[in-house]
């Protein structure tokens, strides 16, 4: 699934990285616990989170994740956005809650990765 399709499905607003909308994402992970995300191994994944702090971007960076979706309308501050820009990570925000966001992406064929 392309990043732009994720944006469409979740009626999300892209905060930064719009130029990477054509990126392919092969799996998804939804969590507010970053250590759980770090136990997850699939490549080219999208991270959905209700947590908004710089460590969400750093966690995505360590995991080579392409895109972060903040759920429940969460808005990252400028420091978080600039951290993501430097790392070419797409940030978007959706008003949908976590459960609905994950369910809608799953329904469109996106799957979770294996836990190592």
């Amino acid at each position: 699934m392309k990043v732009r399709e994720i944006q469409d499905v979740l009626s999300a607003r892209i905060i930064c990285g719009e130029e990477f909308s054509d990126r392919e994402v092969f799996s998804a992970c939804g969590s507010d616990m970053m250590s759980d995300v770090l136990a997850y191994v699939k490549e080219q994944a999208v991270l959905l989170s209700g947590l908004v702090n710089p460590q969400v971007v750093r966690t995505a960076e360590m995991m080579d994740m392409q895109c972060i979706v903040f759920v429940r309308g969460k808005q990252p501050d400028d420091s978080i956005v600039s951290l993501a820009r430097e790392r070419d990570i797409v940030l978007m925000t959706t008003d949908l809650p976590m459960f609905a966001s994950c369910g809608m992406l799953y329904e469109k064929g996106l799957r979770g990765g294996a836990i190592r």
């Binding site: 507010d32 616990m33 970053m34 250590s35 759980d36 770090l38 136990a39 989170s49 947590l51 702090n53 460590q55 969400v56 966690t59 190592r116």
Partner: peptide
């Protein structure tokens, strides 16, 4: 509240 402290740090380090 910052997304850590779930007791996964050391086990994750061992795994990787």
């Amino acid at each position: 509240a910052l997304g850590f402290g779930a007791g996964m740090g050391l086990p994750n380090i061992k795994k990787y």
